[in-house]
Simulated assay, not measured.
Amino acid sequence: MSATTLTSPLRRALPGPRGLVWTVLRLHRTALWIWTGFVVVTAGLLLWLYGPGAAHTQHLLDTFGYAGVQHDAWAVGIPDFPFSSPYNDLFYTPALLLDVASFTVAVFAGGSLIARELENGTARLAWTQSVTPARWLAAKLAVPALFITVGTGLLVALYRMLWSAHSNLLLAGIGPRALYFSLGPGTVAAPLLGLAVGALAGLVLRRTLPALAVAGIAQSAVIAFRANSWPFQGSYQQPELSVRSRAITSTGAEIPDPDCAYSHACLARHHVVGFTRTYLPSPDYWPRQLLETGVLLAAAAILVAVAFGVLRRTSTS
């Protein structure tokens, strides 16, 4: 078979932007289906938590005498109540899945999306078919960026809807505050940064395994930093949100918290059967959300610019 026969389909596919987009979609269709499946499954879990899961948990709370517990839109439930714990645990699962997705995007970008094509020579073949290296990289980044933005944007919107409707079913503690601060545009920006991290790693290292390893380590550091550093709200966010705690007696009355949640004798003495924990929203929530998003997107833009610079030098060498 001649070289002309081998390259003619590629030549027909690559002359314009549409051809580039179609080529990227065809080449990485397995990754696209995996991403679509992830979004569908995670969205299904969120909708189950919003509907049947919440209804079942609320029924158990009502049945066992906790129907009188009052809370506002930011309240989170009853410590150590056994029927709320499974729902509480599942509530945080989508947040974990979004972190995993952010990590996976970086690994995919570093390995399959960029480095593999440089390693096996496919990229240089494309550059000989009237496709400039810059257009090649632009298509490689733009197509997954679109799917990442739409998918994570949908999941964050569903998560915020779930939080607004059923955060009262969560057990009290630091977790609800950390989750609340993670439900913003920064959660959409993080995997876009992962895409940029992976692309740069792939272009610099030009070998699949080293590139995906470096991209995964770098994105893991980003995820850890977001979870534990101001203004990226997480387990140790500062300043702390205001907290109002009230105890619920066996008659359903609210009394000041006797501060003895872990002493059964103290709880019995005060006839306490449950608690409310109300976390009020921080007044600077949105400024901090926008600051986080701006930092992540700015970092992604810088890495993309560096990636194009690296590509320009390597493609002419």
Rank of each mutant, 00 (worst) to 15 (best):
2 S>H: 08
2 S>G: 11
4 T>H: 10
6 L>C: 02
7 T>V: 13
7 T>G: 01
10 L>A: 14
11 R>L: 09
11 R>T: 11
14 L>W: 02
15 P>W: 04
20 L>R: 15
20 L>K: 09
23 T>A: 10
25 L>G: 09
26 R>Y: 04
26 R>K: 11
37 G>E: 03
40 V>F: 08
41 V>N: 04
43 A>F: 00
50 Y>I: 00
51 G>F: 03
51 G>P: 06
52 P>C: 06
56 H>T: 14
58 Q>M: 03
63 T>F: 02
66 Y>H: 15
67 A>T: 12
76 V>L: 06
81 F>C: 05
89 D>I: 13
90 L>P: 05
91 F>I: 05
91 F>D: 01
93 T>S: 08
95 A>N: 14
95 A>I: 14
102 S>L: 05
102 S>Y: 02
103 F>K: 11
106 A>F: 11
107 V>P: 01
110 G>A: 13
111 G>W: 01
116 R>W: 01
117 E>D: 14
122 T>P: 02
124 R>I: 03
135 R>S: 09
135 R>H: 07
137 L>Q: 01
139 A>H: 02
141 L>I: 15
143 V>R: 01
147 F>V: 14
147 F>W: 14
155 L>W: 05
156 V>T: 14
156 V>S: 08
158 L>A: 06
178 A>S: 13
179 L>T: 04
180 Y>C: 03
180 Y>P: 04
182 S>C: 05
183 L>C: 10
183 L>V: 13
184 G>K: 08
188 V>D: 00
191 P>N: 13
196 A>P: 11
200 L>E: 12
205 L>T: 13
212 L>N: 00
214 V>I: 14
218 A>Q: 12
223 I>M: 13
232 F>A: 13
234 G>T: 06
237 Q>Y: 13
240 E>C: 05
247 A>R: 00
249 T>N: 06
252 G>L: 02
254 E>N: 06
254 E>M: 07
257 D>G: 05
263 S>P: 04
274 G>A: 15
278 T>H: 08
282 S>T: 05
284 D>F: 02
286 W>V: 09
287 P>I: 02
288 R>M: 10
288 R>V: 03
295 V>G: 04
303 L>M: 11
308 F>A: 03
309 G>Q: 11
309 G>H: 13
313 R>S: 02
314 T>Y: 12
